[in-house]
Structures are given as structure tokens and as C-alpha cells.
Amino acid sequence: MKPVVEMQEVKKVYRSGSRRRQVEVRALDGVSLLITEGEFVSIMGPSGSGKSTLLHVMGLLDRPTSGRYLLAGEDVTTLEDEDAARMRNRRIGFVFQAFFLMPRYSALRNVELPLVYRGLTEAERRRRASRALAEVGLADRMDHLPSELSGGQKQRVAIARALVQEPALLLADEPTGNLDSESGREILALFERLHEAGKTLVVVTHEREIAERGRRILHMRDGRLVNDEVLG
């Protein structure tokens, strides 16, 4: 199996406060980890344990203070901002708790958005975006604005936006956190289907029930991986 995420002793230290009374927060305190192609990994842990930080580093939205990170075999530890942006655009699909859709764009245009920065023609973007929307079961909602969609539908648009990038890695930070349990189950079913189709998924969650959909649960505490639980 090809490694997708390879981390060695990754640390992320935030320094804040005044110069005299500096406060150091070790959001990640030496994380080493290997995720291979096709895995469905959940990350659990108490609030403030560093789950989001780990996901941001994985998704090249944040840079580690020290350590090494290989994404799909490529060393991305010290990437220039512009190169990191291009990698995010081509290798990473991100799904946020708060959806983050453009309120004035239709579902279709929201899904197109990452492809705009690849310089694809509008026709090509349309083609790929409508396919991605069909994949998440929203073929009949393409022209709807986010305000005309339910929470679960919004999150499915966001997932389609991640899928349209054909990413090596799909990351989701509490994707069901803003949804009722019914919509949450829809999203989870979708993730399971994506896993069965061979996608590599990393999902941060607070709920054991959700985490158990995955085949492996990483437990975090105080910026460290404390348990790597593989389910049967």
C-alpha cells in the first residue's frame, strides 16, 4: 500500500502573549504517523488536544514548527506559500464544520470554485462539478443557493467541492458538528461510500459512533497521539 501521509516527530508551537510574559502552546508535541492509500481514519480527543491543528498541517494550511511531513511521497515540510497553495488545489480536499460556501454562488459554482484556480475552462468546470454533485446525490439542486439548502445538503455541496479536486487526501474537521443526527448519518453514509470507492479519508470527530464508521481511530491528548486503535 502506498503511503499518503507520513509524519515524523511533527511539532507545532504557538507563541502568544506579550514579550515579557510569553505563553507557549504545544498544539502538536511530536506526532509520528503513517496513513496509507484507501484508509478511513478517525481522530478523536478532548477539546484543545490538537486535532484541528493536525488536520491543518496535514492539509498544508499550516506549517509544522519542526519535524518532517511527506505527502504522497513528496516532502512538503518547508514548502513555499505559492507551492503549498498549488498542492492544496490538486492534492487536498477539505471539508469544514461550518461548510464555508460562497453565499451568492449556486451549488454548482461553489463546487467549481477550486477548479477556477487551475485555469480550467468554464465548460470543463461545469462538467466536472455537475458530476461531483451527482456523486453526492444533489444532481437536482445544482442551481440552488446555499440559503435554499438544508444543513446536510450544504455539507454535501462542500464534500462535492472537495471531491471535484480529485484529491489524494480528503480531510474533514467535525463535518457533522453543525448537523442534526439524521443529516449527520447521511454524511457518514456518504463517507463510507467514498471509502469503499477507494478514497483516503481523515475525519476529526467527538463522537465514538461516528469514529467507529472508520477502520482506525487515532486518540489525541495534549498534542500527542496516545492510542492508535485499529477496529476489527
Binding site: G59, E82, A85, R86, R88, N89, F100, P114, Y117, R161
Partner: peptide, 16 residues
């Protein structure tokens, strides 16, 4: 600000 953050998260470069 949030729109800009989203665009960058989705892969817009600073130059773009």
C-alpha cells in the same frame, strides 16, 4: 476576510 480564507484554502495562490 473569510471569503479570501476560503479561496486560499481551496488553492488560490497569493498572486491570484
Amino acid at each position: 476576510t473569510r471569503e479570501i480564507g476560503l479561496r486560499k484554502a481551496l488553492g488560490a495562490t497569493s498572486a491570484q
